[in-house]
């Protein structure tokens, strides 16, 4: 009788420990900003960048890098969605049946985005108007699904959270760099401000660079230029960071 009780209490203790481990998310005891965890945040910015190295999320990079403002909005939105979807999937990782895991991930991402959209529509209508076109782009963004599949399904909650933020930031960084060049060279503006001077109907009326006969490059506004700029970025990154260059 006594041993039975002891067993039960031991079992309870073990369960408790399991719970704590589950919540604290890292299996080994680790400082919450240990070197490994910091790497989760910083790696995707350079060595393991989702766009230039993993080549994920190219599709949305084409669509919204014509100007800086939408690129920044998209970057912020993706940080939110990735952080939370990674947390949710990581929490459910031991419960998700492996055969339908992709569907489950999709449902988590899609309902999260739809939920946020509904709340914004009610309480922050102007923000939701800004985001309206991005909703679809976020759901279909391969980075979100890619990280859920590659990381959140096999790692603890806190690590997955960091991985989500890191990858979203790496994605946003490239987005903003590409948008910077496309807006500057394509329309002569940054965040909508005319940084290269004002372009009037005639050269004589123009100011700044335009007075010297400078013309905007309309090609920069078209989608193919986003790919070419990303290509150039990959080139620059690999020239600088030799370990990214593949053998043979």
């Amino acid at each position: 009788m006594a041993t039975e009780k002891k067993n039960i209490s031991e079992e309870k203790e073990a369960k408790k420990k399991e719970m704590i481990l589950f919540l604290s998310s890292s299996e080994e005891k680790e400082h919450f900003l240990s070197k490994g965890n910091r790497k989760l945040l910083s790696d995707p910015l350079d060595d393991n960048n989702p766009i230039t190295v993993q080549v994920l999320g190219i599709c949305s990079a084409l669509a919204i890098t014509v100007q800086l403002e939408p690129a920044v909005v998209m970057a912020i939105a993706v940080v939110f969605v990735m952080a939370f979807s990674n947390i949710i999937v990581s929490m459910l990782r031991n419960l998700i049946p492996s055969r339908i895991r992709i569907i489950v991930q999709l449902v988590v991402v899609a309902s999260l985005v739809a939920l946020v959209d509904q709340v914004l529509k009610a309480y922050a209508y102007d923000v939701s108007k800004q985001l309206s076109v991005f909703i679809g782009l976020i759901i279909t963004n391969c980075i979100v699904m890619g990280r859920l599949e590659a990381f959140a399904l096999g790692n603890g909650v806190y690590k997955s959270f960091l991985d989500g933020i890191g990858n979203a930031a790496g994605y946003g960084l490239i987005l903003i760099i590409v948008a910077f060049f496309r807006e500057l060279l394509g329309s002569g503006k940054l965040f909508g401000f005319e940084v290269l001077g004002h372009k009037a109907a005639t050269v004589a009326d123009s100011t700044g660079l335009y007075a010297l006969g400078y013309e905007n490059n309309g090609l920069m506004l078209l989608s193919p230029m986003a790919l070419i700029v990303v290509g150039l970025l990959i080139w620059v990154q690999r020239a600088r960071n030799r370990k990214l260059i593949e053998e043979n």
Binding site: I96, P97, R99, I100, V104, V107, S111, A114, L115
Partner: peptide, 22 residues
């Protein structure tokens, strides 16, 4: 988590929860 029954159950519960929340 690999059995058919569990997979179905998970899918059904997931759909019900998500649908009602939304």
């Amino acid at each position: 988590t690999n059995s058919n029954g569990y997979t179905f159950l998970f899918a059904v519960i997931m759909v019900i929860v998500v649908a009602s929340v939304l």
